[in-house]
Design a protein around this nucleic acid. Sequence first.
DNA 1: CCCCGGTTGTACCGACCAGTCAGCCTATAA
DNA 2: TTATAGGCTGACTGGTCGGTACAACCGGGG
Lengths: 206, 206
Amino acid sequence: MSQAAATGDSRRRANFEVRRQAIIDTSALVFARQGYHATGIMELCAANRLGKGALYHYIGSKEELLAAIHDRVMDEVMAGADRVAEAGGSPSQQLSLLGDELLDVIHRYPDHVWVFLHEFPALTGERAEQFRERRRAYERRVEAVLEAGVETGEFRDIEPRLTAMAWLGMHNYTYLWLKPGGPLSARDVAKPFADIFMRGIANPSE
Amino acid sequence: MSQAAATGDSRRRANFEVRRQAIIDTSALVFARQGYHATGIMELCAANRLGKGALYHYIGSKEELLAAIHDRVMDEVMAGADRVAEAGGSPSQQLSLLGDELLDVIHRYPDHVWVFLHEFPALTGERAEQFRERRRAYERRVEAVLEAGVETGEFRDIEPRLTAMAWLGMHNYTYLWLKPGGPLSARDVAKPFADIFMRGIANPSE
DNA sequence: CCCCGGTTGTACCGACCAGTCAGCCTATAA
DNA sequence: TTATAGGCTGACTGGTCGGTACAACCGGGG
């Protein structure tokens, strides 16, 4: 029965994916703690309670695993940016929401983000290219919001690119200390950050 | 004559130090490009045009070399902070000067700063402890300026620690794109950054 | 002149690296 | 029950790692 075969197959594939994701998440923690190059395959095996063969059954290579961690972060970040775009609103509101979403990802995936910000140079070839492009795409979305704000007169006449980098730095840098279970929630940080930045670029004549 | 011996000795020692510094600088470039763990000792030898024995004559170990790069950066950053403290002035002026100095270091030592921000987890034991302390010391200086500004009423009632981290992130993150020879000087970036941040935390009732 | 100590090249070390492979185990489908 | 295939094992490989040992070199002072 092709139906039964299909369900059996898809169940197996689903199970495979679940396990694979668990491996990616566990490995992200190890990479974050020790560094990508400093972590041996055998340490990943121990952390995941798997033999070498089993681990390689789920990941193609060490670098592919690293790429998967990067994708996990970028998927979340881009999804957040999409939600913001759908929500609409003024450039100020958009920028504020972007901050909420970005800090939420950093807060929820501290290990993945750490790896993403520290080990991205370890990606090579095709993968490196693809990742850089996604990263730039996100930067451009921030830039676009700033440009829009300047155009509407909501923001003063700032350099969009330079200002976007300032905004990104302010937010991304929280990966060093913003952790789940810590004293501050993502929102606790996003609000004062948005306050500083909005006042910083607001058009005083409005 | 002990005088002659002393001068001969000190000249030799000076020469040793000059060479050592050159090795540290060259190695910083290689580490910045490839990563600390991804760089082999033989690559450092090639970059410095030295044999293995000669290289180890100047550096005690790979990690000691990494620590030397960290120290180089922190020495410059702390010296900048000292100059600012000596210059005096209002908290706003102090913070603005701190930004100038910090971006100047990032602009002048892009490789060292890159290594410093990416590879500090590779330091172990005593060295790691010492480095973390110096880093925290700098963070506290920024924090202190913010506290002073709140006290004088120059700044609105912001969280000094959180705001310091925002300021640090905004400035440190420039290591990704601020390079000597690029289109922007350190001052070109420091000025608009200070504009954003000062307006962002200014006390509106003043 | 030789000799001395800072300097340097090179052979070598054990440890560890990422990745492979032949084959075993087990659950499912026929 | 048997055939099949996905899940998994761990010994093994060729190569590279950081670091060391040691002999040779060299320039300057006695």
